[in-house]
């Protein structure tokens, strides 16, 4: 088997994960400063940082975590005093013992992301579904946290 030649002109640049990591850290700093309520408490313990999308609805938070190739059983979601933590490990999916790598760009190892939710959620009603490499977490808001409309009569 011939060796793979790395061709500059053909191959798009693949940035090392540290560059993205740094960019993400800087973005996160900015985000935390501007974003009301939601706070990213991720620690630097992670070997890599999965991308996260969070949307707020009237009655729930929707959290999406990019976890391609991570097994369901290797993901742990916890909620402790309004801090949502998603942690786990991505294991290298070696198929045979005799595998030789020509290129390894994917990141492996443990990951962790934590967020402080701005409002209380129903801890016992949190649902998580893993599909196509994306973890979808739905956190229904607690009754007292839902927006209430009060009609004020003008006399």
């Amino acid at each position: 088997m011939a060796l793979i030649r790395w061709n500059h002109t053909r191959d798009l640049p693949s940035w090392p994960s540290e560059v993205f990591g740094l960019q993400r850290d800087v973005n996160r700093m900015f985000d935390n400063f501007f974003r009301g309520g939601l706070q990213d408490d991720s620690t630097e313990l992670s070997a890599w940082t999965p991308a996260v999308d969070i949307a707020e609805q009237k009655d729930a938070y929707l959290v999406k975590v990019e976890l391609p190739g991570v097994r369901k059983e290797d993901v742990k979601i916890t909620l402790e005093s309004s801090i949502l933590t998603i942690r786990g490990e991505k294991k290298q999916d070696t198929e045979t013992a005799t595998e030789n790598y020509h290129r390894v760009e994917r990141c492996y190892g443990s990951f962790q992301r934590s967020f402080t939710l701005p409002t209380t959620v129903k801890a016992d009603r949190i649902e998580a579904v893993y599909k196509d490499g994306i973890l979808n977490i739905t956190l229904p808001k607690a009754e007292e946290a839902k927006p209430k409309q009060i009609e004020v009569k003008v006399k």
Partner: peptide, 22 residues
């Protein structure tokens, strides 16, 4: 550019690319 691993096995080459949500 999605991250990619290229592995060589005895009888084949295996390319694994991360495409979450695709």
């Amino acid at each position: 550019s999605p991250a990619v691993d290229v592995a060589e096995q005895e009888n084949e080459m295996v390319v694994r690319m991360e495409l979450p949500g695709v």
